[in-house]
């Protein structure tokens, strides 16, 4: 027990391969606790921030896989209009461009909130999160306007397989944006009340990953559904 790090000569410490699995955590000179757990790379275990980010990234990838099923269904059914209106009749490219601009700008301001929170600036974190939320709300409003217009003109989800899959995939993305806005409001309140504690910072990191991933899904969505589908 007492023959831990002090017993290891300095020369040997330097010769330790940092990428060898099972390298003693304590033997490398971090407190000499003598833990012998396997799988610790250079510098011991990864920081909690890295681990939390990885776990949330796994969730986001599973979300993307779920979206891929909706995309596959829509791509297969894009021409199954059953005599009803097609994408060429329904989609308005300028409104889609405006929606894209709102979401891209909100992704940028979300990144600004990450920069502001990394230097613990309360004012700019709140301002950029607020702008992100306003832009996201504008996006949702445009989408709701499009949906109600389509349903009123008789192009609702029950009209054809094409429209069922359209409302499913675009609506699913809209649900994600709605959930993201609720999360955003929660994060603004938490940052305001609790400040930049490490766990709040990690939640902000996860929210950032979520919001940027929604923008990535929107890129696939406007390309497949609106631009390619609008030409059919």
């Amino acid at each position: 027990m007492s023959t831990s790090s002090e017993a290891v000569p300095q020369r040997h410490r330097r010769d330790i391969d940092p990428y060898r699995l099972g390298r003693g955590y304590g033997a490398a000179g971090y407190g000499g606790r003598g833990q012998d757990a396997t799988g610790r790379g250079a510098g011991g275990p990864a920081s909690k921030r890295v681990i939390v980010g990885f776990g949330f990234w796994i969730f986001l990838l599973s979300d993307i896989v779920m979206f891929s099923a909706f995309f596959a269904a829509h791509a297969v059914l894009q021409t199954a209009t059953a005599g009803g209106p097609s994408g060429r009749d329904l989609f308005d490219p300028s409104r889609v461009a405006l929606e894209t601009a709102f979401l891209l700008a909100s992704s940028f301001t979300c990144g600004m909130s990450a920069v502001a929170s990394s230097v613990r600036n309360q004012l700019w974190t709140q301002v950029s999160l607020l702008v992100t939320g306003v832009l996201g709300t504008c996006f949702l409003a445009l989408e709701a306007y499009e949906f109600t217009n389509m349903i009123r003109s008789g192009a609702g989800p029950q009209t054809s397989a094409f429209l069922s899959s359209f409302f499913a995939v675009v609506g699913l993305h809209g649900c994600h944006v709605t959930a993201g806005l609720l999360w955003l409001g929660t994060m603004m309140a938490q940052v305001f009340v609790k400040g930049f504690r490490p766990n709040i910072q990690r939640r902000l990191l996860c929210f950032n990953l979520f919001w940027h991933t929604l923008d990535i899904i929107w890129v696939a969505l406007f390309t497949i559904v609106y631009l390619i589908g609008g030409g059919r």
């Binding site: 990428y19 510098g43 011991g44 920081s47 990394s118």
Partner: peptide, 21 residues
């Protein structure tokens, strides 16, 4: 890759260039 001291240092050279902090 010899075990230079900097290589063993957490948050030394072992940080992604794009990591926000």
């Amino acid at each position: 890759m010899s075990g230079r001291r900097e290589d063993l240092e957490p948050n030394g050279s072992d940080v992604a260039p794009g990591v926000i902090d």
